[in-house]
Design a protein around this nucleic acid. Structure first.
Lengths: 188, 188, 188, 188
DNA sequence: CATGAATGAGGGTTCATTCAT
DNA sequence: TATGAATGAACCCTCATTCAT
């Protein structure tokens, strides 16, 4: 029997790279197969459709990221510390696998609508922290969603600038700045 | 407006709507023709390819928006006032044509790389204001690009939440909050 | 504008021939296109799927045949005369377009289940004649369906033998024999 | 029955069922393997190709049926008795394994052309009986093939009506009617 | 010897674009 | 000029079959 899980990994890696380089629609299954060094048909043993491949790539990492953020947040006490920990986690996540991160950002508009309520979501994790900060009185703003958008926006747009080359160097180097910007905007 | 221009406008409107509803790649020229109430072949009298149609839709509005933002900014004196004016403009822009705005957000990843330096860009307008604020000493941060990302992020992510239904009501209603958040983050 | 209805006819003829020669599943849209002297894509302007092409080919002729049989039957008075007229019509139909007839016989197993009650059906026409013969007392058997099977079987199996070369010459030459066999079996 | 033969039988049974339910082309080796509770590759230990599997299923049963019919016919003296015995045998055969019978009817158009002269054929058995009836003067018609078609048609079309649900209950219950219809048509 | 991953050719279908009318 | 039929390449996917394990 041939490799198995190894092939699946090869497909994932190749697909991720192509999707980021050319976009999902512009990357054919033929291209992915060629880049994975297997044949088209073989992909379908591991993913039953292109849609499923994209979704697995998105959903698995989306949830994994949410879980990691949640762990980081839970390890801290104050809202400020929670936010700082998440931002640091975010930066590490970005630096560890920029391709993956770019993919997540790239396809979010097409995939976010498929995210179900029972799935772990980074957005909800951040919102949860903000909300608890409001509940404890640490944060004075009352609209958790609005504030969540701000925090998320600051971090994600910085990442976006990084992707487009407007900002350079590791994201980790910006963690301190990002944290202080977020704390400012949250009113901490 | 001559009949030719009217047709062109019909195509643009129909295309914009379809692109936002189904995505660019999932919207065929056949669909666009049908929605524009003209024939497939006739589209090519107005746009020489689908790519050009997408690009015109993006670039024209992108530059138009930049120009408008620039006018608003120039009418003000202080950096704080400039930022506030731009944020208000942004909210108006969004409320006036949500479809258009969603389109811009949707396709940016595919089109931004085609934007040339000689094109007016909203990002550059914002960055210009921030930079001048730094130059005059109003803003103490030194990295204009980083701060631009924050301001942009706050505003764009709020719009994104609006699009996904996480936030409701007109964006104009959030202008004051957005302004204060941005001023906070900029240190004004 | 190119041909239009002429192309549709070309496709039908080519498809019919291929389906009969190689079978439906063994005939690809590519083959049909080649045989029609047009391209694959062009077929889809006229038939929205291969299934629809097969169905149209079957259903249109199936109903047309039913209608013709019905006319022939209505022109006669006695049950015997009706049966004879239908059998003659059947033979003419076969001789006029053997390919078409073979197609109908070939695909019936796959298509018959899609025939709806509101569609004209040769089987129902024959059964109607038998039933009315029973009602008037001309036929003494009481199970119209069973007798219909016999009549149909005699005629169709003769055609099948013709197709496989077991019997030769025009079907019309067998009309008299077929009629007398059917009248025998019906008890007239 | 060795384990190899048992597996072969499982494959045959599963394939037969699938072929009848979905059609031969619509039933993949994957499906057959799954339904047989073995793996795809293992099928090829028993049948060297899908074509061969179909052919074995058809040819073996086709010949077996011919042999049985022949035995039944040989046990009788008069042509009428021979026909009656064969019709009874046919009905029993149908009732015993309807799936098998439907399969034979379903694939005949694709397989009949592969039947060689040295193979036992039910058609030839029936034709032999008719021919000998003509030779002995019991039957007055002179074209054995034509009469064979009638007899075959009466029986097979009745079975077809059974398959499509137009007729219900066991075929055995129709044996007497079928016999008298066939004797009528043959002129006995 | 059985397994099931991999092959590779082909399946039906869609689509941006061209062009005869 | 506007039309929509035709093009032809590419799309995603399935399949019978092979073969490393």
């Amino acid at each position: 029997m041939r490799s198995g899980e190894a092939t699946k990994k090869k497909i994932k890696t190749a697909a991720l790279t192509l999707f980021v380089e050319r976009g999902v629609d512009a990357s054919g299954m033929r291209d992915i197969a060629k880049a994975s060094d297997i044949t088209e048909g073989a992909i379908y043993r591991h993913f039953k459709s292109k849609d499923e491949l994209v979704w697995r790539l998105f959903a698995d990492n989306f949830e994994h990221f949410a879980t990691e953020l949640n762990k980081l947040q839970q390890a801290e006490g104050s809202t400020a510390a929670k936010l700082e920990a998440m931002i640091q986690g975010f930066c590490r996540f970005y630096d560890d696998d920029e391709i993956l991160f770019r993919f997540l950002l790239l396809v979010q508009h097409g995939q976010l609508s498929k995210v179900t309520d029972d799935m772990a979501s980074p957005i909800e994790v951040v919102k949860g922290v903000i909300q608890s900060g409001i509940d404890t009185g640490e944060i004075v703003y009352t609209d958790a969603t609005e504030v969540t958008a701000w925090v998320l926006g600051i971090v994600l747009q910085t990442a976006t600038f990084q992707i487009y080359g407007r900002l350079q160097g590791p994201m980790a180097g910006r963690a301190v700045h990002l944290s202080s910007a977020c704390l400012d905007v949250v009113g901490l």
